[in-house]
Amino acid sequence: METYIVMAVSAIFVNNILLAQGLGSCPYLGTSKSMDTAIGMAMAVIFVLVMAGAATWIADHFLLKPCNIEFLRTLVFILIIASLVQFVEMFMKKSVPSLYAGLGIFLPLITTNCAVMGACLMNINEEYDFLTALINASFLGAGFGIALILFAGVRERIILNNVPEALTDTAIGLVTAGFISLAFMGFQGLG
């Protein structure tokens, strides 16, 4: 149990996938302009990350390793993630339309979100067992969500202020992200 708590603190705060490792910054800048889209994206990422974590772990241990074709990992993982996203989208549209209305437009974007692919590869590189890999994936997703929602809150206020013309939009967003990331560096030494 204790190891899982340490893992949670490490994945959410100390080694935050976005602010400490720089993964997944495209959707970070793209969907953080308003709180609603940020929450939608955060939920979608957590959801897909856990499912992709499970699917890629199973594929790696029962397909790639027994057949000695680990060199195909990149290709197999991206195909799994892409088809999983497609499948989740269809499933949601049919059976949970209310959830689809909220997350729908964010789902296709997740295929090219390197946080998902990155987290799956990390799980394999660390050689976690199935349960640990799942838990780690969900915490990494939660860390991404927290960072995204925090950033959206700050960004909503920036829009109301006068920013020098050259710095508008993405540039000021990146500088802001830098400062949030600086704040998260304060957690280092906890894990």
Binding site: P164, E165, A171, V175, G178
Partner: peptide, 17 residues
């Protein structure tokens, strides 16, 4: 570290603008 990356990229982007 990561903060340096964000800030450097943000400022370079502003210069390009």
């Amino acid at each position: 570290k990561a903060p340096g990356a964000f800030v450097t990229l943000g400022l370079l982007l502003a210069f390009m603008n």
